[in-house]
Design a protein around this nucleic acid. Structure first.
Lengths: 215, 215
DNA sequence: AACGCTACCAAGCAAGCGCTTGGTATTCAA
DNA sequence: TTGAATACCAAGCGCTTGCTTGGTAGCGTT
């Protein structure tokens, strides 16, 4: 009932992942996922997420797209360059997606719910793999690479901070709440399995919301 | 005032980290930190925490205690064996410490506060390094090693689950709340700096408590 | 004095790693 | 028809990695 109505409202304004990506590719913010470089990024994101950066070899990534390991370096300067690019692009995409969802939400609290759900979906790779490595593999990046990613990340975090500040959240300042939330949400990657008849991501988002922003 | 009184109460029943460790060494649960093996474990825990398991070499660990890399394998079967042992022992110690703190707390909510503070202190290496790798490096363990650590970990988690169940926490079942809490707390390792005139660990624990168990 | 035990060294092996080099096939614009 | 650009292969280099081997020094016990 209320759920159905909400779903309809959402659908009317929602953009599909493909459209979203295509638009970002067109404006030059993202690599075309159908290009060789894009396929490499996709494979690398999946592998980094699954096995970790250090335990993933360039040979693994190359094999995943059916080329030899040396050929990778026609597309990227180094293995770290791949990780850095994945992190940047995944952040850009997640930001666009979250901004869209937030814009569609009516109340501040629903905006926060949208942020939580968006990040949960990103962490669990619903549209694009690689988001969870932003937290898990942060230390695998050199200081220079971290700076590059941070530039994108700041824009992403600003949406969060504004949304939290507009909602009534206990526990103090928005930055602190955001950090606790990020920890709680990113850790779900290691225990939450959307497949199965347990909690759905949307239900999980509601639980989290009820803790961090009690009605 | 109330704070002082509470501090006194705590001190009267508290056991110092050294005593705690000595007792666990005596009962055979922990390696003597003054033995060569113990020194290796300590060094490994520090390095794994700082640089990650994969980026820490056995040569690094050996150098830290002043021996050659090959000599490590008189004390441990493999590099993974070191990680596994560190995780087991760090869990055993954290459990003993948390059990003591919980026993001293009066109300259910204060018990939960004690758990939160204990885990925060463990994560930030107040008595012994290595706790944060339980989450960060879990995937670096083989399935067999994970089983061994899980045996200790279950005892540790049981304290948490009982304490949460006894407190009034929003958000549903204790297991879910615990998982969100673990994520939030372990992630503090990558942003919270106790040094400085910002928040203290105890204050941070209060903030977290106010979110997860509103008064 | 002889023994065994613990702790360690010296040297190095085999495997795997990121990355380089020089060259080739294909495509498409001029 | 030529030329440049793209995408890739084949081969392998230099280095690091976890771990092994055979041996030694020091210690406490009998």
């Amino acid at each position: 009932m209320q759920k159905k109505a909400q779903a309809l409202v959402k659908k009317s304004g929602e953009v599909s992942p493909r459209q979203q990506i295509a638009a970002l590719v067109a404006e030059g913010s993202l690599t075309d996922p159908d290009s060789p470089r894009g396929r490499l990024l996709h494979a690398a994101a999946r592998l980094f997420e699954q096995k970790g950066f250090a335990r993933t070899t360039v040979r693994d990534i190359a094999a995943e797209v059916g080329i030899l390991s040396g050929s990778i370096f026609h597309h990227f300067a180094s293995k770290e360059d791949i990780l850095c690019t994945v992190m940047q692009e995944v952040t850009i995409y997640a930001r666009a997606r979250m901004a869209g969802a937030v814009a569609l939400a009516a109340s501040p609290r629903e905006k926060l719910r949208a942020c939580i759900l968006c990040e949960l979906e990103a962490i669990h790779g619903l549209a694009v793999p690689g988001f969870s490595i932003l937290v898990a593999e942060w230390r695998s990046l050199s200081a220079d690479s971290q700076k590059k990613v941070l530039r994108q990340r700041d824009e992403y975090e600003q949406i969060w901070l504004e949304t939290i500040a507009d909602t009534h959240c206990p526990g103090g300042d928005a930055a602190l709440v955001r950090r606790l939330l990020l920890g709680a949400l990113s850790h779900t990657h290691s225990w939450f399995k959307p497949r199965g008849r347990g909690l759905s991501l949307a239900e999980l988002a509601d639980r989290v919301l009820s803790i961090f922003a009690p009605a």
